[in-house]
Nucleic acid binder design. Structure first.
Lengths: 227, 227
DNA sequence: CGTGTTATTGACTTCATTCAAATTAGGTGG
DNA sequence: CCACCTAATTTGAATGAAGTCAATAACACG
């Protein structure tokens, strides 16, 4: 079984920016106790073992949350895009880590211990509840993918899912590397690459030269593959 | 890829029993709007597409929640044992189904729409919040298992996990069939059986004649295998 | 225009699956 | 109590999908 963990290049220094005005649009919710920070590519938002108690929200960019096996095998349990909330934990310590995918800005809401949450702020509590239940539903879908779908089906499902979460439907600008995709879908980069090449050859998707975006050319065919 | 869905034998009629006195012990929580029902083996607690809005709690026995692919491939996203809460949904309709494993008694809490929850009852809301976050953590662990562990590691992890959730630590009375185990761990019954046989031969576990319970003989070895 | 990183592709291997048969357990009726 | 039946589980042999290892190709960046 393979080991894949990209070396974390946390060389860029990130800044903490106290928030004056609540963010605009979807970000306008969840205001009390917020601070926004810029994270560099692959920088840790929080690590396994860190004290939990904050929750995080992507303002711009994207992040991954990761579970690790002792020998380094990695499962990316979710990718988080703009607007997504993550970081919820049942334990006082984080049992998974979160890292920024590219450069991203992420809001942090402090002092959100589970016990005090519901009392402090009804709106906040309901949003977090909603977020955790949505996350649970996604996790269940993903278990089905991991446990029961073939390589090509996994890729088809992944692309459809991502395209639904991006504003522009047919062009997907991948914020993550092939390794990240592999570790999210429970496969290897070789198999990911082969599956993408296959879809490209069958003119179901188009992969431009720089390999970091994908265009869906035949959504119906992709849905058929998804099973 | 295989298809495995046991035919549901819902021949036994189950009864709805209005609750006079709150259940004892851990079941004493979450009282308002509760009714308890007895479910027969393989009987549906709720089906995919049913209107969501109730939550459920195992009083005795066990249940499984299941996601299905269009061709019948099945992923059991979780087994629920006595005390466990399940049935939470982000959508107004259930996107997964739940079935009783053996004969079980399950409490149902009605009219629990997500929006009203937090307001109606602070204690109830916090319990549900807690349950959903615990479920999310379990789901993340399970994604790691499904995506990155080998057959023998999956079985070792599964047995350790189950033994931790049962009162008696070394003897596990399996409430589920091999098919259920396979569909939970993302493998086939043949592979499940082979892995168990292997552990039995190596004297790490003992499988008695009736095959429905397992004794852990060497917990340390099991933990080593878990990786 | 080299250099390092990321992605693709090829050849071979392996682990889990498939298909099938054998075995065992448990329930039913004589 | 035992023979029979059915369903569940185990086991065997062959296949196949994805993995491993390794080489090549394509970018991105200074």
């Amino acid at each position: 079984m393979h080991i894949s963990r990209p070396d974390v290049a946390a060389d860029h220094v990130s800044q903490t920016v106290p928030l004056r005005h609540p963010p605009i649009g979807r970000g306008a919710l969840l205001s009390p106790g917020l601070s926004i920070r810029v994270f560099a590519k692959d920088e840790e938002v929080f690590a396994e073992g860190d004290r939990a108690g904050c929750i995080y929200r992507i303002v711009t960019g994207a992040a991954r949350t990761t579970r690790l096996l002792s020998d380094g095998r990695r499962q990316i349990t979710a990718f988080h895009l703009a607007g997504d909330i993550f970081g919820l934990e049942s334990d006082p310590e984080h049992r998974f880590c979160a890292e920024s995918l590219g450069t991203s800005t992420i809001g942090t809401y402090r002092r959100c211990s589970l016990d005090t949450l519901a009392m402090v702020d009804g709106l906040l509590a309901r949003q977090i509840m909603k977020a955790s239940i949505v996350a649970l539903g996604r996790a269940q879908d993903h278990m089905l993918l991991l446990g029961r779908q073939s390589a090509i089906e996994k890729i088809a499902t992944f692309l459809l899912d991502l395209s639904g979460r991006f504003p522009n439907d047919e062009q997907i600008d991948l914020p993550m590397s092939r390794i990240d995709i592999a570790d999210h879908l429970g496969m290897t980069i070789a198999t990911v690459s082969r599956a993408l090449t296959l879809l490209d050859r069958d003119e179901i998707i188009a992969i431009p030269a720089h390999r970091r975006s994908i265009t869906i050319r035949n959504r119906a065919a992709l849905k058929r593959l998804k099973a």
